[in-house]
Design a protein around this nucleic acid. Sequence first.
DNA 1: CGATGTGTTGACCGGGTTCAAACAATGTGG
DNA 2: CCACATTGTTTGAACCCGGTCAACACATCG
Lengths: 256, 256
Amino acid sequence: MMELQRQQTPEPRLRNGAFNGQFQPLPAPAPGKLLERCRESQALIERHLPFTRRVLHAGNPVQSARTPFSTLHLVHFGAVKTLVAAADGSSHVAGFHLKGDWVGFDGMISGECACDAYAMDTSEIWSLRYALVLQAAAQVPGLLHALHVAMSGQMAREREWRMALATLPADARLADFLRCWAHWLMQRELRADHVTLRLTRAEIGNYLGMTLETVSRSFSRLALLGLVAFDSKGRRNFAIPDVQALVAFVDARGDS
Amino acid sequence: MMELQRQQTPEPRLRNGAFNGQFQPLPAPAPGKLLERCRESQALIERHLPFTRRVLHAGNPVQSARTPFSTLHLVHFGAVKTLVAAADGSSHVAGFHLKGDWVGFDGMISGECACDAYAMDTSEIWSLRYALVLQAAAQVPGLLHALHVAMSGQMAREREWRMALATLPADARLADFLRCWAHWLMQRELRADHVTLRLTRAEIGNYLGMTLETVSRSFSRLALLGLVAFDSKGRRNFAIPDVQALVAFVDARGDS
DNA sequence: CGATGTGTTGACCGGGTTCAAACAATGTGG
DNA sequence: CCACATTGTTTGAACCCGGTCAACACATCG
């Protein structure tokens, strides 16, 4: 299992921020309202709620499916992926949760967690008991609103992906996926060169509704177009030289 | 504090080429339970919140995109569809909201409504000001939880549809769609014969990520298999003789 | 009546799946 | 250290589902 290898550099931020500036500096670091809002709500939580901090490493579980729902998890930094198990033993990628995202909303409807969640990278997770959140919400309305905004955002993203699957051909779909990650990196005030996707082609394809072969082929085509630049380090390491070009490619639905 | 030891249970990996797992159609739909919960939360609202009742007819707007977000809408009975406008003027079906569903969550993230919503049929809509909901939530925690459950449910449905688009072929996709409506009818304690879909083939296809021609063809194939029985009244009126057979068809991903 | 919107069906073609082979990266045990 | 297995990635070739274009049926409505 490749995730289980030990991190030599415990702080992924430094690795990603490595500077060898042959790529153009990104158009606008876009510190963004999102990051600001994320900070605000985390400050609210820190002030008004008891929670536990956990530092997890790639592959460690955040929550397990079929356990009773009681706590919500906030990704303070790092990345988490959620999987739903199918009857035949295979599992499907349900979603990705990055810095500022919450994990565990899906348990509220049925009373038990609907999916397994794993850290994809060294991550810090804040876990809050839902009952205490409700309790604190009575005193701090801003906290409640922050929670709702997070839920609303997750809903909107889910819907956008559904529409992307319904409308975009394979290449544009992968490009859109990469655009999301680039976006996230830029929100963290990092650069979009040296992206390291800790995902197999099969997992990407599973999420995007295509086979691993098609993912591989689409990657090759995007590289041919110069939209991604593979690193010599391996096929999971690459740079995104021009995020705007990627956006344009998605908007054109891959007609280029 | 830092949990440096490795996790004993490695995360399950996807099999090679695995996107052949099936997504689960809601374990034990619990026909009565949802309706019960729906009734409960509506009782809570009726008792603790001021709201406006509107009876709308097919085509009437519930909310408009780009207007400031201030109110949430609860479908007391009837059906609502939401549309998002694309840059080129075309619009995409964002979702359907039936009895007990809420409309308007998507406005919380950006502060303005993200989509247009129209009644698909004669419907009663309860509209609540979000600020008042927050206010009342401080006194009535059950109300807040009901809201969260509704949001969680919508998120889960959105995700399930995304997975359906990613995994199911056209016929099974349409079957799954019909299964949802049949389900809803049964929740309302009605029968699943004489379904009347107030949707064009193009709208269905738009939602399901396929062309109207494919929708038509899939309908014909389902009718040939006896999974739906068209009424003489027109091609939008039909019966679903055996919902279980429909479920089985979806689970088999259309291999029948 | 023609006009318009909607639904159905056929023929054709292309993007993506499937099957298959080979390669690369990594780990394991002798 | 190498031989070997394992897992992940790439690429090729053939097939097929679903998109595209087109013609036609059927309804409602002016």
